[in-house]
Write a protein that binds this DNA or RNA. Structure first.
Length: 407
DNA sequence: ACAACACCTAATAA
DNA sequence: ATTATTAGGTGTT
């Protein structure tokens, strides 16, 4: 307690349609956010612990960071700390705007994708606020190398172990230590591969150790960062035509990443999308391949199996359909297919209280409500997901007595 | 170009 | 209880 600085809660005006952290932080694009009590999400980022929570209108955040040991005496020290505090607050807000990628208007994008694609529209309501994060490219690279033949839960555990053993300790939440993601250099020591195998990384241990060596020793300084999309988001370019195979910078980044160990087309696309800011990147994993077959008529004729040619064709199709932010739309459909969120597809009940009447009768009041329940679900019918939203509309009228004190 | 197979591990299904 | 399958693929024949 004595050697950390805990900030006040601050807030940003962000609706759930623009960002839903409960979905975005669990949908398999980042592996380090951890939920603590009261639906607070925490992660060590840029030398501090950031905690997020949100309500319908605001994203709330605060930071915990090591207090800098100051050689200054008390007067200057207090002045320095107030300056430091000012900088920290300013810095964290812009860091969050960056990391959470808040510039694009997500509601507007959902509208565009929905108008172009009825299948997207079916999923959109239940999976609002899914935003592509701008993560650190190196962290994304290692995280997605871990993702091959793997599930989100174990990937998260592996990344946690990696941070625990090779990353800097930043601080604690509820006595639980939170570490930053290790640098490439931290993973280049001899014996790293064997150690990672002991830690349960399996065959990915070799991929990570070799990739760390390539990035740290064989590539020039700043090589990975240089593959990032340098453009700032420009809404007016939304509808602008662009190559169906993606922008040149994206193609180049993808090709460069393929040279690394344990990086195939899918992992390269994950890094391009989540770590390098190439929004047109569409990672085609087994889920997306199944979606492409089920809902977009792939799996026949020329594209019978997921070869490299088919892989590119699926990405091109979605880029043509959804446009420049195709990777964002892809992430919504991908998330809708995750087992973790399957309960959202069935038994959803929307409750609207359309009318409330309160009559006074003696010492008690009589309250009557007209409650409309809309039960809607995406039910599996003949192997297809069908929207039966309008199937059931329940109306109930309730009368209840409520005791009331005289005041 | 394409298909088949091995590769680590842990949870779940059969 | 033991075995097969599955989970956000990649590298090698």
């Amino acid at each position: 307690m004595a050697n950390v600085s805990v900030s006040e809660w601050r807030k940003l005006p962000v609706s759930l349609a623009e960002l839903c952290i409960d979905t975005t932080l669990r949908c398999g694009q980042s592996f380090r956010w951890k939920r603590f009590r009261d639906n607070e999400w925490s992660c060590a980022l840029h030398g501090r612990i950031i905690t997020l929570k949100q309500d319908s209108m605001h994203l709330h955040y605060r930071t915990i960071r090591p207090r800098l040991a100051s050689p200054l005496h008390s007067l200057e020290s207090s002045r320095a700390s107030s300056v430091a505090k000012y900088l920290e607050e300013d810095d964290t807000e812009s860091l969050l705007r960056q990391y959470l990628n808040l510039a694009p208007n997500l509601s507007a994008l959902y509208e565009q994708w929905s108008s172009k694609d009825p299948n997207f529209k079916k999923r959109a309501r239940q999976f609002a606020g899914i935003r592509i994060l701008k993560q650190d490219a190196w962290e994304a690279l290692v995280g997605f190398i871990c993702s091959s033949n793997n599930n989100i839960s174990r990937i998260s555990q592996m990344v946690h172990n990696l941070c625990l053993h090779y990353g800097a300790l930043i601080g604690y939440i509820d006595d639980e230590p939170l570490h930053d993601f290790p640098t490439p250099e931290a993973l280049t020591a001899p014996g790293t591969e064997a150690h990672l195998r002991e830690l349960g990384f399996g065959y990915r241990a070799g991929y990570i150790a070799k990739t760390a060596l390539i990035v740290a020793k064989e590539r020039p300084e700043g090589w990975l960062q240089a593959l990032r999309n340098p453009e700032i988001f420009d809404e007016s370019k939304d509808q602008e035509a662009f190559p169906e195979s993606g922008r040149e910078g994206y193609r180049r980044a993808h090709d460069e990443l393929l040279q690394l160990q344990g990086v195939g087309p899918k992992v390269a696309d994950c890094v391009c999308l989540m770590g390098l800011g190439w929004s047109e990147s569409v990672p085609v994993d087994t889920h997306v391949w199944q979606i492409a077959q089920r809902d977009y008529k792939f799996g026949k004729g020329k594209h019978k199996s997921l070869t490299k040619v088919t892989y590119d064709a699926v990405g091109d199709h979605f880029r043509t359909l959804w446009g420049r932010e195709a990777g964002w739309a892809h992430s919504v459909l991908f998330t809708a297919d995750l087992k973790t969120f399957s309960e959202r597809l069935t038994n959803n009940i929307e409750v609207h209280i359309d009318e409330v009447k309160i009559k006074q009768e003696g010492e008690s009041i009589l309250e009557s409500r007209v409650v409309t329940k809309r039960e809607y679900s995406l039910c599996e019918v003949k192997g297809e997901l069908e929207d039966v939203r309008d199937g059931i509309v329940l109306e109930t009228t309730r009368s209840q007595r409520a005791k009331r004190r005289r005041t």
